[in-house]
Structure formats: structure tokens, C-alpha cells
Computed example of a mutant assay.
Amino acid sequence: MLMNTEWKTSEVMIMQSEGFLVSDMDGEKVMLSIDNGKYYNLGRIGGRIWELASSPIAIHRMVEQLVAEYDIEPEACEQQVQQFLQQLASEGLVQVKEA
């Protein structure tokens, strides 16, 4: 797994980790870790990021998809997605691998 540094979005693949119960609550994704019992609320856009990570995806492809779906500039989206994914990775919610 890569360290929490600035990832090169063209060289990093993200995928959901296993071991979570996931549900939709009023359009937001909420999760429960089977391993540690922690509860996570990913929100609406975080939930969309989670959906995009259901199979291995490069960060730059994820950013492209989000820019197409939401009113956000690509640079701002990339920065926010990287920060969010680093938080998910630090909690073990996603796996991060070099492409």
C-alpha cells in the first residue's frame, strides 16, 4: 500500500476494501466495519466515490467521472478526491495500489 503522500493520479489505483456493511440513508452512504465496529458516514459525494471504487479505478478516471457529474473544476476535484481517499485509506476503507 502506498503512503499518504501526494499521489500521482495517473499511477494510482483505488478499490474498496472488504469487510463493511454499506447502506443508503437519505441518499448518503453509511458503513459499518465488521472488524472494528466503527461507523462511517461518507455523505453523498463520498458515497459516489465509494461506488466508483467498487472495482479498481485510477484516481484520474474517478476525477473525470466526478467532474462530469458535478459542478466542480478538475483541479479542485482532484485535490479534494485525493484528500478524501487518503482519509479512507488511513482507515483501511480502500486499497491503494500503483497502476
Rank of each mutant, 00 (worst) to 15 (best):
G27R: 11
S90V: 04
L88P: 02
A68M: 11
G27D: 05
E91M: 11
L93E: 11
R44W: 09
E98P: 04
E11T: 09
G19R: 06
I45R: 11
V63P: 02
M13N: 06
H60E: 09
S17H: 12
Q95L: 13
Y39G: 03
S23W: 14
K8Y: 08
N36C: 13
G46D: 05
Q79Y: 12
N4F: 04
M31A: 14
M1R: 13
M62G: 04
E64L: 11
L52S: 00
W7Q: 00
E91P: 01
K8G: 01
S33A: 12
A89M: 08
E11F: 10
Q86S: 13
M31D: 01
E73K: 04
L85M: 14
R61N: 15
K97M: 12
G37S: 02
G92P: 03
N36S: 15
G27W: 15
L32R: 07
M13W: 08
I72N: 00
Q82L: 14
R44T: 13
S17W: 12
Q86M: 15
V63K: 03
K29H: 01
D24H: 09
G43L: 11
G43C: 10
Q82E: 14
E78F: 01
I49G: 02
T5N: 02
V12C: 00
Q79V: 08
I49T: 05
M31K: 01
F20C: 00
N36H: 09
Q95P: 02
G92R: 08
G46W: 08
K8F: 05
A58F: 11
S33N: 12
G37P: 05
S23Q: 14
S10F: 07
D24P: 04
V67S: 05
M62V: 03
L21K: 10
L42H: 03
V94T: 03
S17V: 08
K29P: 00
V12Y: 04
M25K: 10
L93D: 10
V12K: 01
F84W: 14
N36E: 14
E73D: 13
L88V: 06
A53S: 12
Y40H: 12
M62P: 01
L93S: 11
I14L: 15
W50G: 10
E73C: 03
I45F: 04
